[in-house]
């Protein structure tokens, strides 16, 4: 199987779907001539033209709003936000409009819309360019949240999302774009709402997604050296959420650690911990642990940023706390 980098897998998914369905088009900042800030849309304007790979002004609310208007009239737009941070500028269009319209109009309007945006810290981008805010959108009914961690997952999930009838926030991670993984040459689609056990183990379950999935896998390696077998579960999509796989894993291991790059307060980890105790209170051997970002705006200084963000070592510490 050929190896692709994550950004190349996204590019392939976009290319294939643009070629398959002429209603699909891309709009966003620097997506056309420049080929995307992270090279994700490289070559697509040359192949599909400037009408279907459309450069826009820096106007995130309008980018998302225009995509909504196009989606409600039969097109299948993919709006790219250069980074998740700028999605905050488009919050009104995402939360007040895209997430609400199907419901508040009694099902008469459908929005086959994908909003792609990369997030994440780790390279000293400071407070306004390091957001991992997926939990904000999981808290909002009416929009799906998909957050793949590998080239294989990102391609198969993105193709499914582009064919979906619902608005979807598709969150990539800036630090994952250059990572490599096997991607089949033949076409494949991955279903939403299906988690994957990325590493089996019997002693503790680590739930992690996006870049933290890779930190969790590193942690599992370190723990294996200590004789602790960690099972690593990647939900891949946070809405819909495959609770069955997560509960099944924790029911076997009886211990759980949730690792996320977003803030700890009222984060996705808090939601998962609540659900685990609702379903498995009497089966748990130890309190559910959360590993997350420090509740501070992300600092610039390298040492402070490393203190603020969670990593494999923190995951190991959390696991040791409940397994020793």
């Amino acid at each position: 199987m050929p190896e692709l980098r994550y950004f190349e897998a996204v590019n392939q998914a976009l290319q294939e779907e643009l070629a398959r369905d002429e209603r699909v088009f891309i709009l966003g900042e620097d997506v056309g001539l420049a080929g995307g800030t992270f090279r994700v849309t490289d070559g697509l304007m040359a192949e599909f033209g400037s009408r279907r790979v459309r450069d826009t002004p820096i106007a995130e609310a309008a980018i998302v709003g225009i995509a909504i208007g196009a989606a409600m009239s039969g097109m299948r737009p993919i709006a790219e936000l250069m980074t998740m941070n700028f999605g905050i500028v488009a919050m009104d269009q995402i939360v007040n409009h895209a997430s609400k319209m199907h419901y508040m109009f009694g099902g008469q309007v459908t929005l086959p819309l994908v909003i792609r945006a990369p997030g994440g810290g780790w390279t000293q981008k400071a407070a306004q360019h390091s957001h991992c805010i997926e939990s904000w959108f999981v808290n909002t009914p009416g929009i799906r949240v998909v957050i793949p961690s590998t080239p294989y997952d990102v391609k198969g999930l993105l193709k499914t999302c582009i064919r979906s009838e619902d608005p979807i926030l598709f969150i990539e991670h800036e630090m994952l774009y250059s990572t490599r993984g096997e991607v089949p040459e033949e076409e494949y689609l991955l279903p939403l709402g299906v988690a994957e056990v990325k590493r089996p183990g019997r002693d503790v379950t680590i739930v992690a997604w996006s870049k933290m999935l890779h930190e969790a896998l590193k942690a599992a390696e370190l723990l294996a050296n200590e004789g602790i077998e960690a099972e690593v579960v990647d939900p891949r999509t946070l809405d819909p959420l495959d609770m069955d796989t997560i509960l099944g894993s924790v029911l076997r291991t009886r211990r759980a650690v949730i690792a996320e790059e977003g803030w700890r307060n009222v984060g996705m980890g808090a939601e998962l911990a609540a659900r685990l105790q609702e379903h498995l209170f009497y089966d748990l051997e130890a309190p559910v642990q959360r590993v997350a970002a420090a509740d501070v705006p992300t600092p610039y200084a390298r040492n402070l940023e490393r203190l603020a963000l969670p990593n494999a070592q923190r995951i190991v510490e959390a696991v040791l706390k409940i397994t020793l």
Partner: peptide, 9 residues
């Protein structure tokens, strides 16, 4: 912006 998107369609 929704109006503009309808017009883009």
């Amino acid at each position: 912006p929704l109006a503009v998107g309808l017009a883009l369609s």
